[in-house]
Design a protein around this nucleic acid. Structure first.
Length: 430
DNA sequence: ATCGGCTCGCGCAA
DNA sequence: TGCGCGAAGCCGAT
């Protein structure tokens, strides 16, 4: 029995791993965990690889302590996984669910080449994506009641991983982590970040600190980029170093007013599951085609509108527009690998305003997001960008140039909500 | 400081 | 068929 680990890179609170062990124990079979590194994964840089590899190092250790070997393969996942299955005469495979096209493709390629069962476990969401809804949802308001109904059943405590009772028969593995990082063909021009400690242990510590401290200010502070009101858990959630279910359990059990819990759980559960729902049921999630009809129509009607500012990708990447707030948000992302959640919306809206077409806006947004954000290439990012530029999960608003009926956001609006000058000054000092 | 209108379509009640 | 209301707003009137 193997667990092909991919999206959920942790040992604790991992339903895919727990399920694999459960079945292995029932069959009296040994268990191993396999991770396949792709040398050039969708333009990921050392910033993302570094964070991930440090987390995987801890995965290896924690698995060893449970008598489960960890294999790190390098190459094309379908080829490597199939080769491993044949070499070790594996009887069945468990893998974690990921709605992105590339993972779906790998999964199907593996399925074509093996004649053993492959089980897919949604270890990322609390209510499994395909259980929560069987179609693309129109907005949070259509998904929310479905999730709420199922939550009492799914939001429960995890069993503990056992020390695996059956020894693995293969040769002992020795991963040379230090050599590995330098052998990959990774873009090193985007440096690693140092303000956040990678790995599931650090993730759980941050969660505990947040629940004991920042959570009570969350509702008031989260939309003010000059305050540290956000949880900063998203990089851990993205790499699966933290289970959303673990975070939800911690928040549900916190001693703060119900309104605060609800707001945080809304973010952690409904919006994350909505993003997975979007990517899972709409494979065009990163294109104009994924926008709702009313949005396509209105954006098409405004294609020829005069644009006062048009910036090249390079000028945007350097953060050299006329708008100090936008430049600061871009700078924050480049330096820290994480842009404040509220500003991600403003940042995306302005890309629509300052580029030649919605397609170009989308292309620039995805390029910059995936290059600099620690949590790039995540359904949350795709859904967020589609919301900003294409009205996904949103509704129509007053028609105006370029945007048509897509919701607009303005510099003055930000000024009325938070201290823009302070944010710009603080951020440019990073 | 606060309020209403803007504007689309889903899902449910009837 | 009608109606309420929604992922974070904007703008102008009061």
């Amino acid at each position: 029995m193997i667990y092909w680990m991919s999206r959920d890179q942790r040992v604790r609170d991992n339903w895919a791993l727990l399920y694999a062990q459960h079945m292995a124990v029932r069959q009296g079979a040994p268990l191993a965990v396999i991770f396949c590194l792709v040398p050039d994964f969708l333009g990921a840089s050392i910033r993302q690889y570094g964070f991930m590899l440090k987390g995987l190092r801890q995965v290896e250790k924690a698995l060893q302590a449970n008598n489960i070997p960890f294999y790190l393969l390098v190459g094309s996942p379908p080829n490597e996984i199939v080769r491993f299955i044949n070499k070790f005469r594996i009887s069945s495979v468990v893998t974690d669910f990921d709605p992105l096209r590339v993972k779906t493709l790998w999964k199907h390629e593996v399925l074509e080449k093996i004649d053993i069962p492959l089980f897919e476990v949604d270890a990322h969401n609390i209510v499994p994506c395909w259980v929560a809804s069987s179609k693309q949802e129109y907005g949070a308001y259509t998904l929310r009641p479905k999730i709420k109904k199922l939550l009492p059943f799914y939001l429960d405590e995890f069993p503990k991983l056992k020390s695996h009772p059956v020894d693995w028969r293969g040769p002992a593995t020795k991963i040379s982590w230090d050599r590995l990082a330098s052998s990959l063909l990774i873009d090193t021009s985007v440096p690693e970040i140092t303000w956040l400690e990678p790995g599931e242990q650090a993730a759980r510590q941050l969660l505990a600190r947040f629940v004991a401290g920042g959570l009570k200010h969350y509702v008031n502070d989260r939309n003010d980029p000059t305050l540290s009101g956000q949880s900063n858990l998203s990089p851990y959630l993205h790499f699966g170093q933290l289970s959303a279910q673990r975070a939800a359990l911690a928040i549900a059990g916190a001693s703060v007013p119900a309104a605060i819990k609800d707001a945080m759980l809304e973010e952690l559960i409904v919006r994350r599951e909505l993003a997975d729902n979007f990517c899972h049921y709409n494979p065009s999630y990163d294109t104009f085609d994924a926008f709702p009809d009313w949005a396509k129509k209105t954006l098409n009607a405004h294609r020829r509108d005069r644009r006062e500012f048009i910036y090249s990708r390079d000028v945007l990447e350097q953060g050299e527009t006329h708008d100090p707030l936008w430049n600061a948000a871009q700078h924050e992302m480049v330096r820290r690998g994480k842009m404040h959640g509220y500003l991600r919306m403003y940042w995306g809206k302005k890309l629509l305003e300052w580029t030649r077409s919605p397609e170009e806006a989308l292309q620039f947004a995805l390029y910059l997001n995936d290059r600099y954000e620690l949590d790039g290439r995540d359904p949350n990012g795709y859904a967020g960008i589609a919301w900003s530029i294409g009205g996904v999960h949103d509704r129509a608003w007053s028609e105006r140039p370029i945007f048509g009926k897509i919701r607009y956001m303005s510099y003055n609006g930000c000024r009325s909500k938070f201290n823009v000058d302070k944010y710009v000054a603080d951020t440019m000092n990073l």
